[in-house]
Amino acid sequence: MTRGIRGATTVPANEENHMIANTKKLVEEMIEKNNIAAEDVSHVFISVTKDLNATFPAKSLREIPGWTYVPVMCMAEIEVPGSLPACIRIMMVVNTTEEQKGIQHVFHNDAIKLRPDLVKQRGE
């Protein structure tokens, strides 16, 4: 069965080092909380808000051992008035036997506002 695992974070500035570091930290926590092996990942989509263009956040996954061959694609998030700025969102599609309710989605920094219901459920 394939399942989607959501993650999101915000960065303090449109700078490559912030985008790479925050994305890597987020993905590493998604991996840890969901016991993900790179071989079980079908693909990863990463979207960024229009104010982030300093780098491709997908580059951060190449810094994770064993993730060289995981397909990753970056794209622009749609511009919705009043939406969260400086935000990087991740949709990781994995093969797993875990039930939908057992998937642990991860939100960092101001991105916690996107799904407070999921953060609250996990007691974070």
Rank of each mutant, 00 (worst) to 15 (best):
G4H: 04
R6D: 08
R6L: 15
G7A: 10
G7F: 09
A8V: 06
T9H: 01
A13D: 14
E15Y: 06
N17H: 13
H18D: 10
M19V: 13
M19R: 00
N22S: 02
N22F: 08
K24Q: 15
K25H: 03
K25V: 06
V27S: 09
E28D: 10
E28T: 07
E29S: 04
E29Q: 12
I31C: 04
E32W: 05
E32L: 08
K33T: 02
K33S: 02
N34H: 12
I36F: 10
A37W: 08
E39A: 15
E39Q: 13
D40L: 07
S42Y: 03
H43K: 12
H43V: 04
I46F: 00
S47E: 02
K50C: 01
D51F: 05
F56Y: 08
P57Y: 01
P57R: 02
L61N: 02
I64Q: 08
I64P: 10
P65L: 04
G66H: 09
T68V: 11
Y69K: 09
Y69G: 00
V72S: 07
I78L: 04
E79C: 06
E79G: 09
P81L: 02
G82W: 05
C87S: 11
I88C: 10
R89E: 14
R89G: 03
R89N: 11
M92I: 11
V93I: 14
N95L: 10
T97M: 13
K101Q: 14
K101H: 12
K101P: 02
G102L: 07
G102K: 10
I103K: 08
Q104D: 04
H105K: 13
V106N: 01
H108D: 04
H108S: 01
I112A: 08
I112N: 01
L114R: 10
R115W: 09
D117P: 08
Q121S: 14
Q121N: 15
R122D: 13
